[in-house]
Write a protein that binds this DNA or RNA. Structure first.
Lengths: 186, 186
DNA sequence: ATCACTTTTTACCAAATGGTAAATGTTTTC
DNA sequence: GAAAACATTTACCATTTGGTAAAAAGTGAT
């Protein structure tokens, strides 16, 4: 659980008691490769920290293609930004995963006992959204080769752990195109 | 200022005193078409509400093309998600604008006197980021025609107020392509 | 090692988009 | 209202990407 606390401490200070409070509410769990953490149509009201592994968030467009919206990897927190609304996306384990989970209720109640909790949480998720937005922004305005190179920069340690087809669906191209691009880069 | 208060009230309750507190810190200002609200390299520490007009946020990619990251229009709040860091983007008025401005300091101090202020603010900006992310997501995975049609849905009342070249740079295509697409749709 | 299964690479042609340049249309300024 | 400045459309061809299909490479189970 050290990783989680270190992660949170980047966004604000906590004393030992407060850290205890947080850890008391945490539950560890695991996912196998290809398992779903959550599926479109369901709701999920949890806050999740990835100790190990990679998740991908994807949906289907009108043509029926799988579109990968983003990946989340080790040492990142995430939750459902659309609180009680049913999900429109699938959240799937790309590799085996170890997760730490909080119920949204427990997570929010921490603001009763930890001053600044709301501010810390705000910073954490604000940063997460910002990163996702910035990464996706450049996907629109560049050609496929550039997009792939930027993907390599943005997710340097994910490349060899994710099937090519997922990366292609993240970049908005076919896997054939991505394969061709890889070939031309070398 | 009514519009601003109504906007905030969508995200939480405020009594009359609290509304007063907020309005006391607000300053009105105007921008002319093509004026810059902020430029890359500068910092900006304000929270802005658009009473009238449209702003666009853009940057330059490696090739030197202007890339429009997003538009912000009437009745939306925004601030700089990268607090004290220098901007990498330009914020420009697409039309004449009327704005309400808070200094970041004043804005944040409201949390001393308004319980739940942090939570309300969190919700507001979370929603803003979510919208931007969702809108950009679909830009990656669809062809140019579909992207343009989605733009029309997402920003129905902006289409005729924004030059075609800005829309094209938002969609990640050339203005020639967009012109061709427009022609084919009719 | 072999088979079944999945993932990645190739190949071919069709379709979409980009680059350059010019023509047309619209707005602003004097 | 003419000239200048700016925005949009059109046209031509080059390049990139997609669609379909098949081959090759990789993986896991027996």
């Amino acid at each position: 659980m050290k990783e989680l606390i270190e992660h949170i401490l980047q966004f604000g200070n906590l004393n030992k008691q407060q850290i205890e409070l947080i850890l008391n509410k945490a539950t560890e769990t695991e996912l196998r490769k290809d398992d779903y953490f959550a599926e479109a149509g369901s709701t999920f009201n949890q806050v999740v920290f990835i100790l190990e592994g990679i998740l991908r968030i994807y949906y289907y467009n009108k043509k029926g293609d799988e579109i990968t919206k983003y990946f989340i990897d080790e040492n990142h927190l995430f939750s459902n930004p659309y609180k009680d609304e049913p999900l429109t996306e699938y959240i799937q384990a790309v590799t085996d995963c170890k997760l730490i989970i909080f119920s949204k209720k427990d997570w929010d109640e921490l603001s009763d006992t930890i001053i600044d909790w709301d501010k810390i949480v705000h910073k954490i998720f604000q940063k997460g959204m910002r990163e996702k937005l910035d990464r996706r922004s450049s996907l629109v305005s560049e050609d496929a080769t550039t997009r792939y190179l930027e993907f390599l920069e943005n997710y340097p340690n994910l490349t060899n752990r994710i099937p090519l087809s997922y990366i292609a669906s993240y970049l908005g191209i076919t896997q054939q195109s991505l394969s061709r691009i890889r070939k031309n880069i070398r």
